[in-house]
Amino acid sequence: MSAHPVLAVEGIDTYYGRSHVLFDLSLEVGAGETVALIGNNGAGKTTTLRSIMGLTPPERGRILFRGEEIQGCKPNEIRRRGVSLVPEDRRIFPSLTVAENVELAAAAGSTTTDVYDRFPVLDDRRDQRAGTLSGGEQQMLAIARGLVGPPTELLLLDEPTEGLAPQIVEDVSEVVEALTDDGITILLVEQNAELALELADRAYVIETGRIVHEAGGDELLHDPEVLETHLGVR
């Protein structure tokens, strides 16, 4: 790992109201890496991404993006610095058309990457209301929306394959791999541990708000103890 990771989370504690969710959590993502964050439901994966994005700021600890502290910044500032979140449940704007969803996100910055090249399935449906898309198409739209606007250096992907049919899951993984090839750094949260470990260079295992394991993707994938105790996989 290089001396200056793109993202360094240093000992953050995050709360939802009074309940303590993340405990002294640290992790790093190097430039161009794809890092997975895996763990059971309610372990704190989504909260970690929300903390990085400034949606649920940590009470203690530091979050460094390219060496600069961002933990006190508002989400829109963090986005403009180059961090982009593709949230859980996609959260596209259902009453707007596909094109309006994309254009809105693009209006926040200058990147005019032609996302329709990357997502041809969206090209055919530009004028369709986003709420009428299939689950997989909505996911593609959510990722597309995360790539336009301010230049994206770090993409936070939250459960991109949740609730999708196996064939579509494959499409999404291909997109993630293509993004990695294009040099975008990715922090990926996945329920589907096997898929996550296949896609990732490295992975962290999170349990009740704490990082309990860190290793290369292959290493974890073949560590029966990790699979059993932390992921409930046979």
């Binding site: 994005m53 949606l55 989400p75 986005r79 704007f93 009453s95 996100a105 929306r145």
Partner: peptide, 14 residues
């Protein structure tokens, strides 16, 4: 319209 639907997400878009 987007803000009315999901202000947090609009903020996260920048």
């Amino acid at each position: 319209q987007a803000t009315a639907h999901d202000p947090e997400m609009v903020d996260a878009l920048g």
